[in-house]
Write a protein that binds this DNA or RNA. Sequence first.
DNA 1: ACCCTTATTTTGAGTCGTTCACGATAACGT
DNA 2: ACGTTATCGTGAACGACTCAAAATAAGGGT
Lengths: 137, 137
Amino acid sequence: MTTVEHQLREAGLRVTAGRVALLAALGDAPHSDAGSLHRALLANDAGVSVQSVHNILGDLTAAGILRKIEPANSAALYELRVDDNHHHIVCTSCGAVADVDCVVGHAPCLSPSDTAGFTVASAEVTFWGLCAACQTA
Amino acid sequence: MTTVEHQLREAGLRVTAGRVALLAALGDAPHSDAGSLHRALLANDAGVSVQSVHNILGDLTAAGILRKIEPANSAALYELRVDDNHHHIVCTSCGAVADVDCVVGHAPCLSPSDTAGFTVASAEVTFWGLCAACQTA
DNA sequence: ACCCTTATTTTGAGTCGTTCACGATAACGT
DNA sequence: ACGTTATCGTGAACGACTCAAAATAAGGGT
């Protein structure tokens, strides 16, 4: 039994071909959207419908196996890293996404001065810039 | 001539009823999406088509008169504050949005350790929590 | 004050990403 | 092997937004 199968069972989810294939595809291409994953699965003869991709992504995200991020000007992206609260940097030119480990977990910026009566549960940081490829181009 | 008219002309844009009405509506209800603004204008007899609302929002955003934000699980929102680089706190329950002035503009968290080859142009922070109303409910 | 140019708005259609409903299929505990 | 029930497929639908081209109106020039 692979690690992936373990993960699914521990979450009370059945181990299906689609879920295993999708997790594998996401391992190969982190920060993928539903469409890309669907195409990747089709290319691997692990065909599932587009709707099933959405089902799977929703189920696995709810189970805490996947993390969903929604950068501006982009479809929802999914990644396998869920344990740590890392952030992301997005290329404003091509949309490439990379992980960013926030060195200062308790940074001042994460404790806003005036919360307007809100209770703060979490902070999400998105950096915008140019990826290596788009800098040269 | 009102301030709003000045702003538009300085940006090289024509002063139209729709633009003036939309800016007024945004003043009354900050952090509004295109649909809300469209309804607000209709209620004020300043009818414009939904597509025009999108046109206006796009034009004014490009001109630097409006700022566009796109929190996860939400349509694009617009606000009048464009000069300062403030952040936002969003209610996970009802979607309410409030401004947050980041006290530490040069906070450590805004200088990620490993940028994966990216050049960082800006950082965007979104806080998630419960608004005052949703805390009591 | 009136044209004329051209920015803006409208009308109408169309796209993309996602969600919903429900019957068909298959996972897996017994 | 069997039956229950989670999961998947099919098909329809949605919201937010974009595109294209004809109709309108802002505002500079005369």
